[in-house]
Nucleic acid binder design. Structure first.
Lengths: 218, 218
DNA sequence: CTAACAGTAAAACAAGCGTTTAATACACTA
DNA sequence: TAGTGTATTAAACGCTTGTTTTACTGTTAG
């Protein structure tokens, strides 16, 4: 029940099962993955699942937590801390996020599995958000605070953060629809770099004169 | 092969199957729906599937096209054409979209099935985008043109449209994560109305001084 | 030495799936 | 009227799934 507990990896067989289940769950998801395929890859008998994880669900949960354990220490998004100009730091963040989203298929299985858990949450989602996604998102929120030209409330800061990543996510999770909506003639204007530029400009402009804009109009 | 063809509904049995398959596919998706359950609900023999639709895939495709046929005429998003003020028209669009997204579970099965097809596309996706989603999105793009203070290229207009709906979509399709990220203490600041207000202000500010902002700074 | 135990193995179990068969009932044509 | 094709049915087929049973190890404690 305690999702924060470390997973015991001393057992050789258990470790083989988890390392085999990871890529398979990451690629196919819980429903389409089969214990037989996992056990074949791990070179263990199917009865071992019952022995170590009770059932398929238990195995999945442990696999997700195992992936989180291997990834919790690294921040998946870097906010380009080297650059001093706020705008270029935001651009670094956005383009980095877009690039990771587009290349998700070639990402390590741990990342794929965690993202899958975020998109279609099960029991483990709470832990994943707290230990994996939240830290990265907080990095963005810090940046938002520096970009805003006034003190932001917690809700305002969050909504702005959501607006930024929201502009990115659908290019991945609605990619087929996006691709159908963009005519071939202008597809070359939708590279990661150009999308990142657009989102950065859009966001900067929104933050810049949020209220003072009225005095600027006309 | 021609997805644009009308579906023959003169046959009584065929109609019963499609009307039974619709809600089930909409609720469970292709994989988790079973022909047995559909046939039980439609009160027909399982062999009828082979008779009318060749197999389960054929039934699914016809069901999606059937749903599209019933929904293609209505624009699912209204751009508040009555309001004269551009900002309130954008607000109407955004809040309408957010409201529909949040209430998707109680939407008619046709809408649920079409949205499912957009999120996890199969063969029918191209038709759905063209006949169902594209018209509604074009309504937004027209609005964007009026909001922008200069002539937009096709790519610019599209990116802005994507930025707007992108800010909305993740509140639905990443709702669990969003819910975990928002502390309970400020959950009351994330109503549909307040989110729509934020997205509208954010977008308006972004469009207002996209380039002239430089001259406004300092 | 022996008894208990935990890990592993092959095999079978029970349930569910999409699909197909074979037979029946009916409608319409030659 | 006889015959042809279609719609419908119950039943079974073949396969895959997660899970369980049963037996056989090797190791360890008394």
């Amino acid at each position: 029940m305690n999702n924060s507990a470390e997973i015991d990896m001393t057992d050789e067989t258990k470790s083989r099962i988890l390392n085999a289940a990871g890529p398979i769950f990451a690629e196919k998801g819980f429903a389409k993955a089969t214990v037989r395929e996992i056990c074949r890859l791990a070179d263990v008998n199917v009865a071992s699942i019952k022995n170590y994880f009770e059932d398929k669900q238990g195995l999945y949960l442990q696999t997700v937590l195992f992936a989180r354990q291997m990834r919790a220490d690294r921040y998946p998004m870097n906010v380009g801390e080297k650059a001093s100009e706020p705008e270029t730091r935001l651009y670094e963040f956005v383009s980095s996020l877009l690039r990771r989203l587009m290349a998700l298929n070639s990402a390590p299985w741990q990342v794929q599995l965690l993202v899958r858990e975020l998109m279609k949450p099960t029991e483990a989602c709470r832990t994943i958000v707290r230990d994996y996604f939240q830290p990265a998102f907080n990095g963005l929120l810090l940046e938002v605070d520096q970009l805003a030209q006034r003190l932001l409330s917690d809700a305002e800061r969050l909504k702005i953060g959501f607006s930024i990543i929201g502009q990115c996510l659908h290019y991945r999770f609605g990619s087929e629809v996006v691709s159908l909506m963009v005519p071939d003639a202008i597809k070359h204007e939708f590279t990661v770099e150009q999308l990142a530029t657009h989102i950065t400009h859009f966001t900067m402009a929104a933050l810049r004169n949020e209220h003072s804009a009225l005095s600027c109009r006309e």
